[in-house]
Design a protein around this nucleic acid. Structure first.
Lengths: 350, 350
DNA sequence: ATGAAAGCGCTAACAC
DNA sequence: GTGTTAGCGCTTTCAT
C-alpha cells in the first residue's frame, strides 16, 4: 500500500521518499518502458492489448507513479506547462478565480498551469517563458507587443481574453459599452469617465476608456469628460463638485475601486448619489453591496471565461490541423459577450 | 547579432526560432559542454581560467543562450522551481505583491518562482508539486497537514509566513494582537470579533481569531463576543444592533472586507462609528480611506515579507550544512514582528 | 585546467 | 502487439 519503493536497510533512515519511475511501472507490469509510455499517454498510433493496458494502469496506480515532467518535456521537445499571466491585483478576484479553474481544466489534459504575476517589480514574461518554455501563454488583456512578438517567434501561442488597447476595435471593450448602455437606459446623457492613477494598468485602462468613449459616440452623446481619481480619495470631492458643476450626471469608472473613491467624493461634497451623480464600476467586488450607496458594477462570469480559455487550450493541444500556423498566433477569445459580463444594478445608478 | 542559429536555406521559412543549446555555446567558445556548464553555473570545485570563463560568457551572451530548465532539472535531479501557494483572493494584494517581488529575487538565484492559486475549484498543491517537483514551497499561512507531511516526506521544504491555526502560539498571530492593543489604547474594553463566512479561509480565520482572543485575555478583558458577517451585508445591521445592545464598543474584524460590512451595518442601524461602535480590519486595502467612516486596519509590509521569504530561499539553496535536516522541515518566518505589520489609524477607531 | 562519457526519466521511430 | 534503441540538453564524475 505504501507508494515508496523499499530501499533495503534504508528504512528508518527516512531519506526523502524517492518517486517511482516509468521503469518501476514497467517492471511491475512486466512490460517495457515504451509500453508504459504508450498506455499512460493514450497514444493512438500504437495498438495495445486491453490486458496490457490494464496491467500498466494498475501498476502505475499501485506505485503512485507520476511522470517526471522534466524528462517528459525534454524527450518530447515540448513542455506540458501553460502559463497564466495575471495582470495585477487591481483587476480583482477575476484573474485568480479564472486561473484556479483553468488550472483544474488544464490538469485534466495533463498540462500544469502556473500563474505568473505581472507587476512593476516582477520578472518579465519573456524571462519566465525562457525558463519554463510553456506550450501556451494565457493573458487577460493582452501582453505588450515585444512579449507577444517574442512568443510568436518561438511558436508559443498567446491566448487573451481581450486584445490590448491598441488593437481594440469597438465591440471588444464590452465593459465600457455595458456601463454606458446602462447609464443611458437610466436617462443619463452627460457622462464622465473616472480613470485610475495606478501605474501598470495603462493598457487595460486605455481599453476600458475607449469602450466608454465609443459607446457614448454610438449613442449620440458628447465625448465623456475625463477625470482621474486617486485611491486615497485625495481631492475627490473637489473633482466631483466640478463634474457636477459642469452638468455631468453619471460617472463610468475604470473599476470598482475608483468608483468607490468617487462615491466618497460625492458624500464629502455633500451631494447625493445617484440623484446628483450616478456611479457605476467594473469588476464586481464582494463588498459593493456595503457601499454608501451600494455600488452598481459590471460582473464577469468567471466560469464562462475559464471555459473559453480551456477550449482554446484544447484547440492548441489537439493541434487543429485545419489551421496549422494559426495556433502559434495571438488569439482572442470571444464567447457571446453578454455571457461573459453583465451589469449588476444597485442604488448608485438608481 | 541575431540570436537564432542560421538554418541554411531555411531563412524565410520562419519556423519557430530554435533556441541555442549549451553545445552551441561550447562550439562558439571552442570549449567542451562541460566547461560551459561549469562556467555558467559558477561551479567552485572546478578551476577555470579567466580567459576560458570570459570566452564562454561572451559566447552565451552573443547567442542569447538560456539553459533548458527541463534538461537541467533532469540531470541535476532537482528542479529550479519554487512554488508560491496563494491562499485566496480575500487576503488582498499582499500575496500578489509578495509573490511578484519574490519572483524577481528568486530569479537572481536562478530559481523560477511560479504561483499556484489555492481555491475550492483549484488543483491540490500535492498534485502540482508532483508535476513540478519544486525545490521549495512557499505559503502565506501554512498548508494543511496532509500537504505539509507529503512535502516533507519528499524532502521539499515548506516556508510559511505564519504557522497554521493549530500550531499557532501567542505571538504568532500578531494581527489580532495589534488590533486589540490598538482598541485597548483607545479605551475599549468590550470587544467583539467579526469573522468571515467565506469558505476556504478557515485556517487563517482561526488563527486571526485566536490572536484576538489571546490578546483580550492578556489585557484582562472578557472573551470577545463572536459574530460572523456575510459580505453581502445581509443581516449586518441586526447583528450590529445586538452587539451594541450587549455593551460591545469595538469590533476587530477578520479582514477589511468584513470590517466594511460591519461599517455598513452600523450606518444602516442608524448608529455612529466610532462613537457607538469602533471597527478595525486587517489587510489594509487601498480604498479604506474612502469608507464611511474611513477604516482603520492592519497593514503588512510586503517588501519586508518578500525579503524574509527571499532569505529563506537563499538558506535552502545554499543548503546550510549546519542544520542538514532542518531545511527539509517546515519553517516559519519571524522577522521582528512590528516590521512586518503595523496599525493604520483612521476614523473608524476614533 | 579541460574534456570524454555516462547517465537523469522519458518519448518516438523502428524493428520484431 | 510489444520491445529495442536512440536521443532530448544538461550535469558530473573521472581521466587526462
Amino acid at each position: 500500500m505504501d507508494a515508496r519503493p523499499v530501499n533495503p536497510s534504508d528504512d528508518r533512515e527516512a531519506g526523502p521518499a524517492t518517486l517511482p519511475t516509468s521503469a518501476d511501472v514497467a517492471r511491475r507490469a512486466n512490460v517495457s518502458r515504451a509500453t508504459v509510455s504508450y498506455v499512460l499517454n493514450g497514444v493512438t498510433t500504437q495498438k495495445i492489448s486491453d490486458k496490457t493496458r490494464e496491467a500498466v494502469r494498475r501498476a502505475a496506480e499501485e506505485l503512485g507513479y507520476r511522470p517526471n515532467r522534466a524528462a517528459q518535456s525534454l524527450a518530447a521537445g515540448a513542455s506540458r506547462i501553460a502559463m497564466f499571466v495575471v495582470p495585477s491585483v487591481h483587476l480583482g478576484e477575476l484573474s485568480l478565480v479564472v486561473s484556479s479553474q483553468l488550472t483544474a481544466r488544464a490538469a485534466e489534459r495533463g498540462v500544469t498551469l502556473i500563474a505568473h504575476f505581472q507587476g512593476p517589480t516582477s520578472r518579465p514574461v519573456i524571462d519566465v517563458a525562457q525558463d519554463l518554455r510553456p506550450r501556451v501563454v494565457f493573458s487577460m488583456f493582452g501582453l505588450d507587443a515585444d512579449t507577444t512578438d517574442w512568443l510568436q517567434e518561438h511558436g508559443i501561442p498567446v491566448v487573451s481574453l481581450l486584445p490590448d488597447g491598441d488593437q481594440a476595435g469597438p465591440g471588444n471593450d464590452r465593459s465600457g459599452w455595458l456601463q454606458v448602455e446602462h447609464l443611458v437606459s437610466r436617462g443619463h446623457a452627460r457622462i464622465a469617465y473616472a480613470d485610475t492613477t495606478e501605474p501598470g494598468l495603462e493598457a487595460v485602462a486605455r481599453m476600458r476608456r475607449r469602450g466608454v468613449v465609443d459607446a457614448c459616440a454610438q449613442h449620440g452623446l458628447e465625448e465623456p469628460v475625463y477625470e482621474r481619481f486617486d485611491l486615497t480619495a485625495h481631492g475627490a470631492q473637489e473633482k466631483v463638485r466640478s463634474l457636477v458643476g459642469a452638468g455631468i450626471t453619471a460617472v463610468a469608472s475604470y473599476n470598482d475601486e475608483v468608483a468607490i473613491t468617487v462615491l466618497a467624493g460625492i458624500r464629502r461634497a455633500g451631494l447625493r448619489c445617484p440623484e446628483d451623480l450616478a456611479v457605476i464600476g467594473v469588476d464586481e467586488m464582494a463588498i459593493n453591496g456595503s457601499m454608501e450607496p451600494p455600488l452598481s458594477s459590471i460582473e464577469f462570469d468567471v466560469s464562462a471565461i475559464a471555459l473559453l480559455y480551456a477550449d482554446a487550450l484544447s484547440d492548441i493541444l489537439d493541434g487543429d490541423p485545419a489551421r496549422p500556423r494559426e495556433a502559434s498566433t495571438t488569439r482572442f477569445l470571444e464567447g457571446g459577450d453578454e455571457d461573459v459580463m453583465r451589469v449588476v444594478v444597485r442604488e448608485s445608478t438608481g
